[in-house]
């Protein structure tokens, strides 16, 4: 009996540990970042159009950075969602077992490639290609970053969506086929809708992967903190800003605080995504069980 209690406490400790780390991170973020708002209006911070942290007078408007992050993330999703869901459908429903056994591990390897390698590839090969193709002053653009980030988010989306699609009961598939539906109709009308909870989780997690990615956007997005008007101009994401500037700031300075404040914004954004993902998957789960 005492052993039972010991084991219970032991695992409770580990469970609490992750909560402790999360709380610690949030605490530090807010401790370092929040005092910026005693000196800079929060509206000016969020919606200011100029990011000149080292000028005098300094300006701390992060709208260009937020838009940079969102633009690149949206672009990445445009690339990754169709490819990811398409390959998930192919692997789980269409591919013969032999082909499936090759593609699945390959997708997983794609997920394991370090982001700096993607960044390097994007900088050296893809950016010059884009520059020549569209005749741009620089190949380091939001578009370039979107495509590279999309490829990076692809395995996340594909593998979670694949799990969701494979776990749709065979009985649904059989019911549909027995009613005279073709394989394609079955996929579109029964299998994908039934897997929607998992597929939407896959998309949101892919989105989290893209918006939180630092190294690649630092390397290929171009890095200019101006509000983007097209996909083909350099942008700077929030993550890249923190990574690039943190080393040059004086601890406790306004610039230092403002980078923490950016991290708070980023944290809030990803938190929102996660809550939305959770909400959506709960909603679909209810649908799958008839709301009981």
């Amino acid at each position: 009996m005492t052993k039972e209690i010991f084991i219970k406490r032991f695992f409770l400790f580990f469970a609490l540990l992750s909560i402790f780390f999360l709380a610690g991170i949030v605490f530090v973020l807010f401790k370092e970042g929040i005092s910026l708002f005693t000196r800079v209006n929060i509206i000016d911070f969020l919606f200011g159009k100029s990011w000149y942290p080292t000028h005098t007078p300094a300006e701390f408007g992060i709208l260009p950075l937020i838009l940079g992050s969102l633009l690149v993330t949206a672009g990445a999703l445009v690339v990754a969602v169709p490819l990811g869901i398409g390959s998930a459908i192919y692997v789980s429903e269409i591919a013969k077992p032999g082909i499936r056994d090759v593609i699945k591990p390959l997708l997983e390897i794609l997920a394991g490639v370090p982001s700096v390698v993607y960044g390097f590839f994007g900088m050296v090969i893809f950016a010059p290609f884009i520059q020549n193709l569209f005749n741009l002053p620089t190949g380091l653009t939001a578009f370039t970053a979107s495509v590279i980030l999309g490829i990076m988010a692809l395995p996340t989306i594909a593998s979670i969506a694949e799990d969701a699609i494979s776990s749709v009961p065979v009985s649904f598939k059989e019911a549909s086929l027995s009613l005279g539906a073709t394989k394609w109709e079955t996929i579109v009308r029964v299998i994908v809708p039934s897997a929607m909870s998992g597929i939407s989780t896959a998309i949101i997690l892919g989105m989290g992967r893209a918006i939180g990615e630092t190294m690649t956007v630092l390397m290929v997005a171009g890095g200019s903190a101006i509000i983007p008007h097209t996909f083909f101009q350099p942008v700077r994401a929030m993550t890249a800003t923190i990574a690039a500037e943190m080393g040059e700031t004086v601890v406790g300075s306004m610039h230092y605080q403002s980078l923490f404040a950016i991290a708070i914004v980023l944290f809030m954004l990803t938190l929102t995504f996660n809550i939305i993902a959770d909400f959506i998957s709960q909603k679909f789960k209810k649908k799958m069980t008839g709301g009981l």
Binding site: F172, E174, A175, S178, L179, G180
Partner: peptide, 16 residues
């Protein structure tokens, strides 16, 4: 063929 030959399965399997 499957439109002309309907099927009911062992376990009820309505779609969600």
């Amino acid at each position: 063929l499957r439109r002309r030959v309907g099927m009911v399965f062992q376990k009820p399997n309505p779609f969600p």
